[in-house]
Design a protein around this nucleic acid. Structure first.
Length: 301
DNA sequence: TAGGGACCTGCC
DNA sequence: GCAGGTCCCT
């Protein structure tokens, strides 16, 4: 039995959408480029195979074009977003020119986002990708028309079979325990049903609830809320955002450390300034800080 | 509520 | 030495 295959084409304006920039910016971790102008990606049980064509992308997928559009937030105008953010925060405006085509993504699989970001704790991108790919290997295989195999991100009944020692051997380090404990806890709370039900919760409750999961602190919880549950007003405050916030908005904190209280103050500041655009605006600042390496060594002054 | 330290692994 | 932190303990 073979799944239906969809083929479609998307015209794009490079200022509005740069596929490579979007999928390597650290929002999602299962995209790779086997060749120039060719990208393969997955989200939950969806896979895409995209080839660059004149003025856009030609896409093959096991899901219709609407799934692609949703993932890349095609319903939101990047130009209008940039205009709103530049108005609310002039300091962000100049960054858009350096990050053309950057977009806030909207993965459909909250489970994949949750496990992915548990892997990001005190970690760096290449290894995060490797770990998420490793987890994905426990998912069911999906053969593409060209014979290559994509993986559905494993469901809990698959993940529950994975041991901590197995993950440690695979290089997860201490996050191996986070993953296995997270699986146990999710199962105990009602599994996929419980996770799906989180979609109906108001954002403050969602954030609080996610934080009660093992391996999920404030930062990871907010990444999951922002990316996995489409709460676009949520701003995960990581080391980069902390440095950005201090540099741009809270100079008095230059000698301070990030506490739970300051975390919330920064998050609230972003929401007040950018409203529902806060999450995307934060992502722009984050990417800029990441790319231009300003996170390295704050001068003690 | 804050502050300090441990924790896997890999790359600068 | 540090990375897109979390957890545990004063």
């Amino acid at each position: 039995m073979t799944d239906p295959i969809y083929q479609f084409r998307r015209e794009i304006d490079p200022v509005d959408f740069d596929l490579a920039r979007c999928v390597v910016s650290g929002q999602v971790f299962r995209w790779e480029s086997p060749a120039p102008g060719h990208w393969r990606g997955a989200d939950g049980a969806t896979w895409w195979d995209a080839h660059e064509v004149l003025g856009g992308w030609s896409v093959v997928s096991n899901q219709p074009s609407s799934t692609w559009d949703r993932f890349f937030r095609g319903d939101v105008s990047g130009a209008e977003f940039r205009a709103r953010v530049t108005l609310a925060g002039p300091e962000v405006g100049p960054l858009f020119a350096m990050l053309p085509g950057h977009r806030l993504l909207r993965p459909a699989c909250a489970r994949e986002v949750l496990f992915s970001f548990v892997c990001t704790a005190n970690n760096h991108l290449p290894r995060i990708r490797r770990m998420v790919r490793h987890l994905a290997e426990f998912g069911i295989p999906m053969t593409r028309p060209d014979g290559t195999v994509a993986r559905a991100f494993p469901t809990l009944d698959k993940l529950v079979l994975v041991s901590e020692s197995q993950l440690r051997a695979a290089g997860f380090g201490y996050r191996a325990a986070y993953v296995t404990q997270l699986v146990q806890e999710l199962v105990a709370r009602g599994g996929e049903t419980w996770l799906d039900d989180l979609r109906n919760r108001p954002t403050p409750e969602l954030r609080r609830t996610l934080r009660t999961l093992p391996g999920v602190g404030p930062k990871v919880a907010d990444c999951v809320a922002l990316f996995g549950f489409d709460r676009t007003e949520v701003v995960p405050v990581d080391t980069h955002v902390w440095q950005i916030a201090v540099r741009h908005y809270f100079p008095d904190w230059a000698a301070e450390t990030l506490t739970a209280r300051r975390y919330e103050q920064i998050a609230e500041f972003f929401i007040e300034r950018f409203g529902p655009d806060a999450g995307w605006a934060h992502q722009v600042l984050f990417c800029d800080n990441l790319i231009h390496g300003r996170s390295r060594r704050i001068p003690k002054a």
